[in-house]
Design a protein around this nucleic acid. Structure first.
Length: 414
RNA sequence: CGGGCUGUAGUAUACCGGUAGUACGUCUGCUUUGGGAGCAGAUAGACCGAGUUCGAUUCUCGGCAGCCCGACCA
């Protein structure tokens, strides 16, 4: 894409009210536009990032047998009355107050839709197990939207729901999903911690996927060596005190326990029959006996993940996108009257995702914008370097002088 | 939802109970081009409502909005 044609411009300064890194940088670099607290427009660069994150999520969900669907954001009261959640839903999410006296509302979650859906197609043990997922916009009346994309009133979520003959099969799948989640976050360049947490109203306990970051809202106690990790909300006060004094010992391996803050990017629950009961979702087993369907649900905050990546990967100059989610792979910049037009055409032909800064602005502005937007590679052509091209990775200061052939080779492979 | 801070051009800010100023941006033209260029011209602003006052962007009250802390968070 030619940068001269990008309708979004970068901002020299971040809006004064923003404090979180992801909000400041994403707004400045023109990835998102804030419409109100916790509600954003995703601009061309931002949408490309979002789509890439979604692609990775889809690949991993498909790999564990998830079939993608798209459920409605607008949901009938009748279904919520069935689970008895309509009242609490109104109290919690009065974002839909416009619909309050009517028979439908904007959904904060989709159990009430996905369970009746399954009821229409599940009759026999032969139909089980199966899982569906969607990437949908959720609406919640957050009392306090904050930190840019990390906590919104309208946000994107991937929610997968699995259906099973019984608790054993559910648990088996739950473990598969847990592994898929860890892999998925790793593919996005993030280190995630699998953390035991409360199940909320869903189940006795759940697992959260936490990305450690100073801007995280959750306090996690975890082992420095092994996998032990628990959310503060479910840990014994006595153990907390020990950990705070540096005396906490891991019950699994004896390693030292420490506390960190994390951003919750995913959460998985064993619902068991919590929602299949009210909707009377049953199947017939091989002997013809009617049995309850067991369910699990598995969420990922997609837009929060977007913000988390920005929060984790940036420096004082701007964003630093991991290659897998960068809106473009390379920022092609021409300086001092040089033209990179041919190079641009060649790169496009090779299928390299390239943002071509063909604007008639000063060198400083181009270079600063490149740092701010944070594409993985920067390729600069100028009369100074004659026929060579300066190639630099965003996360390094090393500059390589390469010829066009080498540039194509380096950028078109992985 | 409780507490704190803040609302002035697109952004960041200044001053003031009496004509709202600057920088950046944006637009026009010319000159420029290795870390946010120069000159000339242009564009654009007091969150909303009530009160006090001859007069309110300024003071008071109420609302709304944004950020931060806390509570909450299927």
């Amino acid at each position: 894409m030619k940068q001269s044609e990008l309708f979004v411009k970068t901002l020299r300064e971040a809006p004064k009210d923003e404090e979180s890194a992801n909000a400041k940088l994403l707004l400045r670099a023109g990835f998102v536009d804030k419409v109100m607290a916790g509600v954003y427009t995703f601009l061309p660069l931002g949408l490309r990032v979002m789509n890439k994150i979604e692609t990775v999520i889809r690949e991993e969900m498909n790999a564990i047998g998830g079939q993608e669907v798209l459920m409605p954001a607008l949901q009938p009261k009748e279904l919520w009355a069935t689970t008895g959640r309509w009242e609490s839903f109104e109290a919690l999410y009065k974002v839909t107050s416009h619909f309050k006296d009517t028979q439908y509302a904007l959904g904060p979650t989709h159990e009430e839709v996905v369970v009746p859906l399954a009821k229409k197609f599940i009759f026999s043990y032969k139909d089980l197990p199966f899982s569906v997922y969607q990437i949908q916009t959720k609406f919640r009346d957050e009392a306090r939207p904050k930190s840019g994309l990390l906590r919104g009133r309208e946000f994107k979520m991937k929610d997968l729901y699995s259906y099973h003959e019984g608790p054993e099969d559910l648990l088996k799948y739950y473990e598969i999903a847990k592994k898929a989640y860890s892999k998925l976050f790793k593919r996005l360049g993030l280190k995630s911690l699998v953390v035991e947490a409360s199940g909320g109203t869903f189940s006795k306990y759940s697992h959260e996927f936490q990305v450690l970051s100073p801007s995280g809202e959750d306090v996690i106690y975890h082992c420095v060596k092994g996998d032990f990790a628990k959310n503060k909300e479910i840990i014994e006060p006595k153990l907390i005190a020990e950990i705070e004094q540096g005396k906490g010992v891991c019950p699994d391996c004896g390693g030292k326990l420490m506390s960190s803050t994390g951003i919750e990017v995913g959460n998985i629950f064993q619902l068991n029959t919590k929602y299949s009961d009210p909707f009377n979702l049953k199947y017939k087993d091989a002997e013809g006996n009617e049995k309850q369907v067991y369910m699990g649900c598995y969420g990922i905050g997609v837009s929060r993940l977007f913000g988390t990546i920005a929060e984790v990967f940036h420096d004082e100059k701007g964003l630093m996108w991991p290659e897998q989610v960068a809106p473009f792979k390379v920022h092609l910049i021409e300086l001092n009257g040089a033209s990179a037009k041919k190079l641009y055409a060649e790169l496009l032909k090779l299928g390299v995702e390239v943002l071509y800064d063909d604007r008639d602005v000063s060198a400083g502005q181009k270079l600063n914008d490149a740092d701010l937007i944070g594409l993985p590679y920067r390729a600069v052509v100028s009369p100074k370097t004659a026929k060579k091209i300066e190639l630099k990775a965003r996360n390094s200061n090393a500059v390589k002088l390469v010829d066009a052939k080498t540039l194509f080779r380096l950028l078109s492979k992985g």
